[in-house]
């Protein structure tokens, strides 16, 4: 009897473990599979130079994704962060002295002043998101959709269809320089990921974020100031977006309208592909890191193999779809497990 039931029980436990870790395992397996595939398909993929490339190109997305992780963990969404990034990047260039050929009536200030004003600007936009959601009661999807337009509007008013090039030297340093071969922008990304992880995992605020996402009503009935937490994550998201926007402008070498539009879907994809639950309360920066790697490897790897460049867009869409299916599927598995133990 015993010899028969013991392995069976262990099997059940192992299966339960696999089921409960599905959202963490699946993205990791995806990443490994993609790396192996591209390494075999292209000799130029798995080189130190190329890995550095991948890291650098995912930095701008990554910094945004850190803030977005907070928002999605609360079971909310931010659609405005790319527009806020764009507006902040343009703002910091707007307050910097430009070359004579730039045809924008801008306001040149000292570098430090420009950075502070731009950051205040993005924090104010995040704060407006927070007020709209918590005081007025607008759902985040709609509120940030409006903010997306407002951000685009600010960009349009500042540059009026022109392009700005110069940014403060501090921003330029962070966005373009390297220390010992490592791009500073990658170090900034690492810093944001690290701080994000520490805040989410080891602080009281981080715990509240998970609890509000896990069961908002229960958090409120436990005496947690839910609106304060929701407001705070929107401001955090805007701050990350703003920083990312400034560094992005330095990295790309120009500040213009619609520069960051593609990053909206990229950052959302990274967070969700990584396995952070769209229903809130599960996931974290670790998942976001994996998600960023999957996206970075995919975007980069597709350039290394012989493939119709128009097909790449479709492939990325399919990968995102598969990740969403796994995300929802993992959520259901989880719900079943909880229910079956009642």
């Amino acid at each position: 009897m015993n010899t028969q039931t013991l392995p069976a029980a262990g099997n059940v436990r192992f299966r339960n473990f696999l089921r409960s870790q599905m959202r963490n395992i699946a993205p990791f397996v995806t990443l490994i599979a993609l790396v192996v595939f591209f390494a075999v398909a292209s000799p130029s993929f798995l080189t130190v130079d190329n890995l550095g490339n991948i890291l650098t190109t995912m930095s701008v997305t990554g910094i945004m994704a850190v803030g977005l992780t907070f928002v999605i963990l609360c079971a909310e969404i931010d659609l405005s962060f790319a527009a806020i990034a764009n507006a902040t990047g343009i703002a910091v260039a707007y307050f910097t002295a430009q070359e004579a050929y730039v045809n924008v009536a801008n306001v040149p200030l000292s570098g430090g002043m420009a950075i502070v004003l731009a950051l205040i600007g993005c924090l104010v936009l995040g704060f407006v998101n927070a007020i709209g959601m918590t005081k007025v009661g607008i759902p985040s999807f709609i509120m940030t959709l409006a903010m997306m337009q407002i951000g685009a509007g600010i960009c349009a008013l500042l540059v009026r269809g022109q392009i700005l090039y110069a940014v403060p030297p501090q921003v330029s340093y962070l966005g373009t320089e390297s220390i010992g071969g490592v791009p500073v922008i990658v170090l900034v990304l690492a810093l944001f990921l690290l701080v994000g992880h520490l805040v989410l995992t080891y602080t009281r605020f981080g715990r509240y974020v998970y609890m509000v996402g896990g069961n908002r009503e229960a958090a409120e009935f436990s005496g947690v100031n839910v609106k304060l937490i929701l407001g705070a994550v929107m401001v955090i998201s805007a701050f990350c977006a703003g920083t990312s926007g400034m560094l992005g402008v330095a990295y790309f070498g120009s500040a213009q309208q619609d520069e960051f539009n593609g990053f909206l879907l990229d950052a959302i994809s990274a967070v969700v592909v990584g396995g952070t639950s769209l229903f809130g309360g599960r996931g974290g920066i670790g998942n976001t890191i994996i998600g960023l790697c999957v996206l970075g490897v995919l975007n980069n790897g597709l350039d290394h193999v012989q493939i119709d460049s128009f097909l790449k867009i479709l492939i990325r869409g399919l990968i995102l779809l598969i990740a969403l299916i796994i995300n929802v599927y993992a959520q259901n598995l989880r719900a079943q497990q909880i229910q079956s133990t009642e």
Partner: peptide, 19 residues
């Protein structure tokens, strides 16, 4: 249902109100 966090361990459920 409106008081508890089913995905979280017991101790996080207990500590949330006095965190």
């Amino acid at each position: 249902r409106s008081m508890l966090f089913y995905h979280e361990p017991v101790y996080k459920n207990v500590s949330i109100s006095s965190l």
